[in-house]
Design a protein around this nucleic acid. Structure first.
Lengths: 326, 326
DNA sequence: TTGTATGCGTTATCAA
DNA sequence: TTGATAACGCATACAA
């Protein structure tokens, strides 16, 4: 591979000093237009590109953000991370940012990875997904003054006031409410909710959306308890949701689900005649043709980068999902 | 964030020179055990970590490999890339390598990205997926003397002799042959192959596996033509494979498919009574419970890194897939 | 076996 | 507005 031109080469070719070349690149406003022109021409002619490592060493910034590639993803929801990542990489590239992947088996290992990544100036910001209640990563990052944004609310008391933790999330409650409303509009009344056991922020949020829509339609609270299903999902046993929903008597008119894999279970158990709505709009939903609540991953990625970049403005973004009708 | 300790700090703390610290890290065999011990203790005590950017600047290597995050992935096959990526990141981490993502809309854009990534010493090797016949990226990389490995054969004449192009691939022919054989063992004879139109390396390879198994079982060549289905897959029309297979009269006993999404189409069109085997063992196959040919992505990732690292030995690896029976 | 001197390519500081 | 000088942290050639 040929030797790459450096600032010195450009400086020599343009008849200026190295520093001036650097200024043209980094602070063009303080350089005279004519000089800028000459330097730019030289850059073009020589095919000069700044050496990323040298710049990083000097500036102590890497312009790289780290993202964890989730190990536990079951593939179905995994494709969600995949799509988010894609959107993120695309947006980041436009801002001159790179995306570095890492993995970790558990939280302690992940924190150890943070240290490695940050100390070596490999990354200077992190994007975290799949946050959960009591996440130990968050306080660690705050304490070590690391710039980060999570895709997912902390689900704590001070969600929207805590300025030390920036997050972007999608309003699942609104999404599930819309899904439920659309089933109600179609004339269904006994609409079951198939989600996870109470206690998970995300799951309870989605459940709340279903309840709201049902209440608004005048369904009494007492009628809802029998239709409120919470199961522990298991990638190896996709039938669990189906069995739960099949056990409801009388049979529900329709089912709103907290995930596409739950929806798949319901669909397989009840057949195509009972309308089912999923969540995340995965390939499975498209393949089987049931509606699903889609997260606006492009917007999420854009918001994540905005929060990462700016010091002022809001620190939290709650985005609206979209119901994909089929 | 605190100021990070450097080699100098460690040297001072251990009462040696910077060079000795560097030697302990990079060429431990030339340092006296006692000195090593003292230096290691100082490293531990100070929490020293080498600064990645500085090392990269000096060594002119980034220890980072670039991987493209595919834009066109339809989600179902996309999860394949996802799983491969995960395996790759995990293995790479063990070797002290980082994985950087990039995207590109087409080949020209991707080549432009190569230049940016390589010139800036952002990455010093690339892993390419979804290679195809006449791939312009390959000659560009070879010409520019860039280290790379592709996951996927070039499907050219000189596949196995061309030492300038290292690749790892999975033997689809063997996989589909095994899938077909298992159906034959179950007593099925009219086994259709649902794949893509002739002309794609991967597709034709898988088709050949089906033909081999059928021939070995004594099915005459003439009987096979009516069972040999090739359709253009379309993420928006998953029914296309199903329609093709439903149009075969008399109805096939079973169907071997070149992908899980084709298998899904066949399954939906023919119902659960006609055995179907897919390819890639995606969540869809697990969800619907049909067998599928699984690519050993862990092994692929390991092989990719081996080929990337070593200058001698083989330059190509053809790995055996595994039939997941269900 | 250990230490000294130098440079990788860039940008920050300060003087001209 | 531009230029000289130093420094970022590390690793290598060479000397001791």
């Amino acid at each position: 591979m040929r030797r790459l031109p450096t600032v010195s080469d450009v400086a020599e070719a343009a008849g200026v000093s190295r520093q001036t070349v650097s200024n043209v690149l980094n602070t063009p406003e303080i350089v005279r237009a004519e000089t800028t022109e000459r330097v730019r021409a030289a850059i073009e002619r020589l095919g000069y590109r700044p050496h990323a490592s040298a710049r990083r060493l000097r500036t102590r910034r890497s312009s790289t953000i780290g993202v964890r590639l989730d190990p536990g993803a079951d593939g179905m929801s995994g494709s969600l991370l995949d799509r988010f990542l894609h959107a993120l990489v695309e947006r980041a590239d436009a801002d001159g940012l790179r995306v570095l992947l890492y993995t970790a088996v558990d939280e302690d290992a992940e924190i150890a990875t943070f240290e490695r990544l940050l100390d070596g100036a490999d990354v200077d910001a992190l994007v975290l997904t799949s946050t959960h209640y009591g996440d130990r990563r968050i306080p660690w990052l705050v304490e070590h003054d690391v710039r980060f944004v999570t895709f997912g609310r902390p689900w704590g008391e001070h969600d929207t006031t805590d300025r030390s933790h920036r997050w972007v999330d999608v309003d699942g409650r609104v999404g599930v409410r819309a899904a439920t409303a659309s089933l109600l509009e179609q004339g269904h009344r006994r609409i079951a909710f198939l989600g996870w056991p109470e206690g998970s922020g995300t799951g309870d949020d989605r459940r709340a959306g279903w309840r709201e829509a049902m209440l608004a339609a005048g369904v009494p609270d007492a009628d809802m308890t029998a239709l409120d299903l919470g199961v522990e999902e298991d990638p190896l046993d996709l039938g669990i949701g189906g069995r739960a929903v099949a056990a409801v008597a009388p049979r529900p008119d329709a089912v709103v689900c907290a995930s596409d894999s739950l929806a798949l279970g319901a669909r397989l158990a009840l057949g195509p005649d009972v309308p089912v709505v999923g969540y995340d709009d995965t390939p499975v939903a498209r393949a089987l043709g049931f509606p699903s609540v889609a997260q606006p991953l492009d917007e999420v990625a854009a918001a994540v980068l905005e929060l990462l970049a700016s010091d002022e403005g809001d620190h939290h973004r709650l985005l609206a999902p979209r119901l994909v009708r089929r």
